[in-house]
Amino acid sequence: MGNCNKKGKPSRPSVRDPINIRGDKENKVSYAKVVLIGNSGVGKTSIAQRFIEGKFDENNKNTVGASYFQKNISFKDGSSLCLYIWDTAGGEKFQALAPLYYRVKSKYIINIFQNAHAAVVCYSVTDDDSLKQIDTWLNKLDEHGNIAKMIKVVVGNKSDVDKSERRVDLKEGKLFAQQRDLPFFETSALLNDGSIDELFQKLASQIKQSFTKEELHATV
């Protein structure tokens, strides 16, 4: 597993500043925060697992709360980017809970979208309702995200299913993303077809292009 740990005691965070997880000031490694969001059961945890551990767990569990992963992405030019991936519960009530906080005017506003450099908004190709809900998720990002440049991508997961089970065509998903001017991917967490690696590779390049080195520090 990619590990971007750096030893060193974190200094006490200052008010208003986004917080550097490890407090390393050298900035040799760039960090980016990515949130995985979308309706319940579209496969967010499976996507994260395929990417991080390279496997599909048949005994998948529904996510209660959120969990957190990290992985290093290497680029051809020799540089690398460490992705902090927050896998969230899709269930509606869990939105009351956000595992991350950010201090604004000495008040703690808890909100998972804060300081996210990118959001992977997922639906399942077997569930047309989950596609419709993407707009709701995008609105939430606009409302609560604080980074204007945040990169958003639309992902249709479970592309491996039988035709008879599909409820959203590839075209339909593409069109949906096009209309909102967002990059689009169809992925399968079940198959080891490289679709998920491609998604995160491209996402990482995009992040690297869009943000300056100073902006890419690890913030929770």
Binding site: R12, I21, V64, G65, Y68, A98, L100, Y101, I110
Partner: peptide, 17 residues
């Protein structure tokens, strides 16, 4: 707390299930 290990992050499932 200094390291942002707040209960929302690690203890939600403990208390809910």
């Amino acid at each position: 707390l200094q390291n942002y290990m707040i209960p929302q992050i690690y203890a939600t499932q403990w208390y809910m299930t």
